[in-house]
Every structure is written in C-alpha cells, then in structure tokens.
C-alpha cells in the first residue's frame, strides 16, 4: 500500500499535489477546530455547573444571615428578593403573603425587578400549589397549569417558579427571561426557590418571636450597666470607656430584647476604610463595633454597604456622621480604634 501511494504521488503534478495537501490540512484543521469547540463547550458546561453550585451555596449562606439578623419584615423581604436575583440572575422575584393562611388571596410584600405599582394589589389563586414551575415545554404539576399561567401573566414572563408555605401563607415567586446567560426554570431549580422560602419563613418566625418577647416585657429592657463615660470636652463625642467595644452578636441580642441603636458615628481611616461606633440604648457613650465573634474590628470599604448594613441589620433610621481622621471631635474615637487595631495586628502577627 505504501509503495502504491508513493507511486501515485510521484505521478501527480506538483500543483495537484499541493492542492491535495491543502485540502488535507483544511480538513484536518476543521476537525481539530470542531474538537476544540466541543471540548470547550464541555469545559464551559462543567464550569457553569460549578458556578451554579457555588451560587446556590452563597445564596443559602447569605439568606441564613439575612433571616438571623433582619430587624423588620420589609427589610427581610427586600434582602431575600435581592439575594435571590443576585445569585440566580432571574428577572423578577416577588415575596407574597396571604392575608390569612389558606385564604388564597395574596398581597405582594416585596418586588425586585418589577415595579409594585404595575402589579395587582391582590392576587387570588384558585389553586395554591406548594411548589410549581413553568417553562416553554411544560408546566409542573399538571394540576397547577392555570395558576402558573396566571402567575406568568402577572409577571409578563412565561418561565416562572413558585414556592409556598401552607403554615404561614408566605410564598416566593420567581420569573425569568431565558437567554444565553440564564436558562428557563426546570425541576433542578427547585432548591433555589425552596431555600428562599425556608429562610423567609425562618426570618418571619424569628421576628414574631421577638415581637412576642417585647410585648411580654413590662419593664424597660435597658441594662443597668454603669460604665464610666469619658467626659467629653465641648463638641467631643463621648466614649464608653468601661466597655469601649461592642460585638455584632451583642447588638443583635440586645435588639431582640427590645433595645435600639440611638446614634451611629462613622470614622474614616487613612486606608479609605470605615469603622463604626454605636451608642446603644442599653449603655451610654460610643462603642467601637467588633465582628460577630469579636475576632476583629468590623471595617467597611464602601460607605454604601455600611449604610445598608446599619439600616437593614439594625433598623437604624437616624442620622449618621462620618468623621475624617483629622476631625477634632473624633479624637476619642480614633484613640479607641487605634488601640484595638493594634490588638488585631498583634494577634495576626502572632
């Protein structure tokens, strides 16, 4: 065979040979290109699968934190809806609740990706499934076909996912516009809707529990802690020298017992990060905010995040003053922050 082929090549003209060679290499490059595209597609699919798992993990973690720390129902619903959109990249999320569990009449508590003014005040559903989804190929379960159609019409998108808690009457509705980045909902997406609903319900029970606790308390809850207060000179901020720091855990715990944050001061550092001082209702003077488990000072790189943290986590609605590192009024704050910053770096170095 080898000799025959060689003979054929010898007899062909150089042009014919070159044409054959070009055709051969074109075919080869085409085949290699196809293999490359297919291999790339497999890799992309695997990476997207990993990304999907990572997103679900982050969603679950974030929602757990939201449920544990939200101070009010609107804040809870808002943060849950935003987190679901961020981690699933779906188009719209509604948080709904029945007026009375089992009434089948829902009100929209929160809408992300949709304007509440464009949504109906009340949504009445003939059947209320605990879980359902629709895409262009199917509606599941088949008994929820009409419900899914109605929900799709309300949100203006055909692919929707619904998760409902019969005990509390709360529900999560998600809708997506499928495209290159986001696929239509299918059964695999059940986790996201259920996690969001579970954390919502968890947060609702926590809030209700706190409300009951507050009602039960007849006397003011402020502790009688008598800390020494730094005597401020005119215009200086008062520091709680006895307990100059406070952890996030302390705050959450005291808020649950009915306390509130009276004042917040923010101190800007030279590295453009910000630290928070709070003056809580259960003690006097400003205290530096430390992390949940007191592992270091809580710092923020972004004032916007800081604002949201203060507003959403503690429900603080008062004014907030940002002090520069050279503000005279903030000398006491700087001293406290410096001393605890030093502690932290020594701990790290050790």
């Amino acid at each position: 065979m080898k000799t025959e082929t060689a003979d054929v090549d010898t007899r062909a003209s150089p042009t014919t040979l070159l044409q054959k060679e070009v055709a051969y290499y074109r075919q080869l490059s085409s085949r290699l290109g196809k293999d490359l595209v297919r291999a790339q597609h497999l890799l992309d699919s695997a990476n997207l699968e990993i990304r999907g798992h990572e997103s679900r993990r982050l969603l679950e973690r974030e929602l757990s934190l939201v449920a544990a720390t939200a101070i009010s129902l609107p804040a809870l619903c808002n943060r849950i809806a935003d987190s679901v959109i961020e981690h699933t990249l779906c188009s719209r999320v509604l948080v709904l609740a029945e007026d009375e569990p089992g009434s089948q009449v829902f009100r929209v508590l929160e809408a992300a990706g949709a304007s509440t003014s464009e949504l109906p005040q009340e949504i009445t559903l003939a059947r209320v499934p605990t879980f359902a989804f629709a895409n262009s190929a199917r509606r599941h379960p088949s008994t929820a076909t009409e419900t899914l159609k109605r929900l799709g019409e309300i949100l203006g998108l055909p692919s929707v996912m619904w998760s409902y808690d019969t005990e509390t009457g709360f529900a999560i509705l998600m809708a997506t516009a499928p495209g290159p980045a986001v696929a239509e909902f299918d059964a695999d997406d059940e986790d996201a809707a259920n996690v969001a609903l579970e954390r919502l319900v968890d947060g609702v029970w926590r809030l209700r529990s706190r409300q009951r606790h507050e009602t039960a308390l007849s006397a003011p809850t402020a502790s009688t802690q008598t800390a020494s207060i730094a005597a401020p000179s005119a215009g200086m901020l008062a520091i709680d020298l006895g307990t100059p720091t406070i952890t996030e855990a302390d705050i959450v715990s005291e808020l649950q017992r009915g306390g509130h944050i009276a004042e917040v001061a923010v101190l800007e550092r030279r590295d453009e990060e910000f630290v928070i001082f709070v003056s809580p209702s259960w003690s006097k003077g400003f205290r530096l905010l430390r992390k949940f488990r007191n592992t270091g000072t809580r710092t923020f790189k972004d004032v916007m995040r800081l604002l949201r943290f203060v507003r959403d986590t503690w429900g603080y609605r008062g004014s907030l003053t940002v002090y520069t590192p050279d503000a005279l009024a903030a000398n006491g704050l700087i001293s406290v922050a410096q001393s605890f910053e030093h502690d932290r770096t020594e701990e790290q170095a050790a």
């Binding site: 935003d82 800007e268 004032v303």
Partner: peptide, 26 residues
Amino acid sequence: TRGIWSTRATRIAADSDIVTAYAKGS
C-alpha cells in the same frame, strides 16, 4: 496600623477630581 490613622491622609474626597460610587439593591 499607625499609618491608617495618620492625619496626612490621602483621601478620595480630598484628592480625586472624579469621585465614584457603587450601590446594589432593588
């Protein structure tokens, strides 16, 4: 650590001619 609190701070507010901000929420 000492430098963080220096009053010779170079801050965005003082030195940048363009100031940026980023926020996220519904």
